[in-house]
Simulated assay, not measured.
Amino acid sequence: WPTPPRGYLPPREGTWIIGILMMGLIIINGFLGYTLRWDERAVYALRVALNLFHRIPWIGDELVVLIQGGWTQGQATLSRFYTLHVVIIPLLLLALAGYHMYLVVYHGVTTIPERINPVETADEQRALYEKLKHSPKHGTRFFPHVLAESQMFAFCIIAAVLALATFLGPALLMPKGNYLSTSMPEEEWWWHWFSALSAYTPPALTDVVYLGLPILSFLILLGLPLVDHGANRGLRRRPIALSFVVGSVVALLTLTGLRLESSWTAWPTNHLAPLPDTAELTPAALQGHGLFTRYGCLSCHSIGSVGGRVGPPLTSLSTRLSLDELKRYISAPPPDVAMPAYGHRLSDDELNALANFVLVAQTFPRTY
């Protein structure tokens, strides 16, 4: 991680800035490659990203239309993303990588003596670099030594990816592409921390977090060479920077843990709702028992302490609803209730069966 040892100090400002630009392009290209699957998970991720652009004041709608190539997502969106992912961004990365490599060879990397002794100016660094590059102990030729070490590291990463794909298989590494059936997609695990941060952010500050955090983080990384001109480059001489990095890692892990245990998320489940031993279900209620899981009801509502906590537990309702009231509620919930309307998704028989099961579930014990 180049931030703790101050890899952006003179004369390596350009090396740092080019590296940050490359990092941004790699993140964008990775996201574009993810969406090129063009299954339900990819479309869901694209909608989340477009929602961020939509929140930009004044030009949000125009940016969304520009990105997706029209008022809706379709062939134009896929063509633009493919061109960016395969042609434009790789060419930009190739150009930046070549210039970045030149700067690394010309200015070198942060050496051990630089981390031990303060280096005030770029001239001091150049003089130290000239001295070290001819030293048998500290000097290392970029070709073939440094290049060989980098290539060996890249080979290990590629070998690990190939080994996972060969011995575990894609099905165990990533869910299969869903092109036909309706499902409940969720963000990938590496974005869990951002999901938890969004959930804990007050509604009045959501736009600030969604837009401000990524933009501000990127600008801070780009601006570090312009505002930080300290002489100490080693970790031991910079406890505040080291504490910030460690704190950031702990915060990311904590937010990820909160997301995995989140009570605000309707986690999909294929398990049937548990029934008490004394339960007696009519044929319609028995059919509704399966529909209750099929349509994700158990992901939000618990029965007998099993299920989600997003909605109220059906065995602890303050007021029990009649069959007709349940049908109306399931078909078209009140506007202030965070529940999707199922009137257009259920047939009349399915709606009747689901309402019959919920009617009986209201009489179940709270725990069993």
Rank of each mutant, 00 (worst) to 15 (best):
W264G: 01
L32D: 06
A42I: 03
Q151C: 08
Q68T: 11
L50Y: 10
P239I: 07
W189C: 00
E280K: 00
R47A: 04
A45L: 11
Q73P: 10
Y200C: 06
S299N: 06
L219M: 14
A231Q: 15
L291E: 12
Y102W: 15
A97C: 05
V310I: 01
G60V: 05
V310G: 04
L258R: 05
Q68C: 08
I17N: 09
L317K: 00
T293F: 00
R236K: 12
V310C: 05
C300N: 02
L291T: 01
Q362E: 14
I20D: 08
S263P: 09
T121R: 01
H344Y: 08
S198A: 09
Y210P: 03
F364V: 01
T166H: 07
L147G: 05
V250D: 07
T282V: 05
F167L: 11
V65H: 13
F194K: 04
W267P: 07
E186A: 00
V161Y: 08
A204G: 10
A353Q: 07
L52V: 13
L211H: 01
Y44N: 00
T319Q: 14
S135I: 11
A355T: 10
V146E: 13
A127Q: 14
F143A: 07
G257L: 13
L211E: 09
L46V: 05
I67N: 13
T35W: 12
T15D: 10
L272G: 06
A76H: 13
P335F: 06
W189E: 10
G212Q: 05
I303L: 13
Y179M: 02
L326P: 10
F167D: 11
H301K: 03
A204C: 08
G308V: 06
H344F: 12
V310H: 08
L132A: 01
V119H: 07
E261H: 10
A266G: 09
S248H: 07
G74K: 01
H138M: 06
